[in-house]
Simulated scan of single mutants.
Amino acid sequence: MFLPKYPDSPTPPPAHTHTSADQAAPVRRSLPAVSISTGAVAVVVVGGVVLTALLAAVAVSAISVAIAAVVLRSLMREQHRR
Rank of each mutant, 00 (worst) to 15 (best):
G48V: 09
L55P: 00
A40Y: 07
S30W: 11
A21C: 04
H16D: 01
L3P: 02
S35T: 09
R81A: 12
R81W: 10
L72H: 10
A25M: 05
H80I: 03
A59M: 11
S61Y: 05
P12K: 07
P7T: 01
V44R: 02
G47H: 01
A56Y: 12
S37N: 02
D8T: 15
A15C: 03
A53T: 08
T19H: 05
I36V: 15
A25I: 00
L72C: 01
A66M: 06
L72T: 11
I36Q: 02
L75C: 04
H80E: 04
T19E: 07
A15P: 01
T17L: 09
V27T: 12
L31H: 12
A53S: 10
L31N: 14
L3D: 10
G48Y: 03
H16Y: 09
T52L: 15
L75N: 06
A53W: 08
V43Q: 04
P10Q: 12
L72V: 10
A53C: 08
V27W: 08
V71L: 05
V43I: 06
G48H: 03
Y6M: 11
S9L: 12
T52R: 08
V45N: 09
H80K: 07
H18I: 09
H80F: 07
L75I: 02
Q79D: 10
S74E: 00
A57N: 03
T17P: 00
D22A: 07
F2C: 06
K5L: 15
T11D: 14
A33F: 10
A24F: 01
D22G: 01
S61H: 08
A25Y: 01
G47M: 11
A59T: 13
I67S: 06
P4D: 06
P13M: 11
A68Q: 14
G48L: 11
V70F: 01
L55F: 07
